[in-house]
Amino acid sequence: MPIVTIQQFPRDVEQKRELAKRITAAFVEVYEAKPESVQVFFSEVESEDWAKGGVMGCDLTSN
């Protein structure tokens, strides 16, 4: 049973729904997996809960 874990910033439930459908379809096509066997876990992280290069995400500026 394929299990996919996605770590990301919070996203709209509709976006997650669409991504889960597409990921499932890819496993069905490539691995010939049954759709009901594919599990997708979303782990959402706020910008104050991660750092890049020693700088907290909430302190980084967008370019």
Score class of each variant (00 low, 15 high):
22 R>H: 07
20 A>P: 04
46 E>M: 06
61 T>M: 05
30 V>E: 05
14 E>R: 06
43 S>D: 11
34 K>Q: 12
12 D>L: 04
7 Q>W: 07
7 Q>H: 11
30 V>L: 10
15 Q>K: 08
11 R>A: 05
21 K>S: 13
11 R>W: 01
38 V>P: 00
33 A>I: 07
44 E>P: 04
49 D>Y: 06
48 E>S: 10
45 V>M: 06
46 E>Y: 05
26 A>R: 01
53 G>E: 00
38 V>Y: 00
37 S>G: 11
53 G>S: 00
24 T>Y: 05
27 F>H: 09
48 E>N: 14
4 V>E: 07
44 E>R: 09
4 V>L: 13
3 I>F: 03
59 D>A: 01
57 G>K: 08
23 I>D: 00
2 P>L: 03
18 E>T: 15
1 M>R: 11
11 R>S: 02
59 D>H: 06
2 P>K: 00
6 I>W: 02
51 A>Y: 02
34 K>Y: 07
12 D>P: 01
58 C>E: 14
58 C>D: 14
40 V>I: 08
18 E>G: 13
37 S>C: 11
22 R>M: 13
25 A>F: 00
34 K>R: 11
19 L>I: 15
21 K>F: 11
34 K>A: 10
36 E>F: 07
20 A>Y: 02
11 R>T: 10
7 Q>M: 07
18 E>S: 13
49 D>M: 05
15 Q>C: 09
2 P>W: 01
54 G>C: 01
43 S>K: 12
34 K>C: 06
60 L>P: 14
2 P>Q: 01
12 D>G: 03
17 R>C: 06
7 Q>P: 07
35 P>D: 02
44 E>Q: 09
36 E>M: 05
39 Q>P: 02
23 I>Y: 00
2 P>E: 01
7 Q>R: 09
31 Y>L: 14
24 T>L: 06
41 F>H: 11
39 Q>R: 06
49 D>P: 10
63 N>D: 12
4 V>S: 13
19 L>A: 06
17 R>D: 09
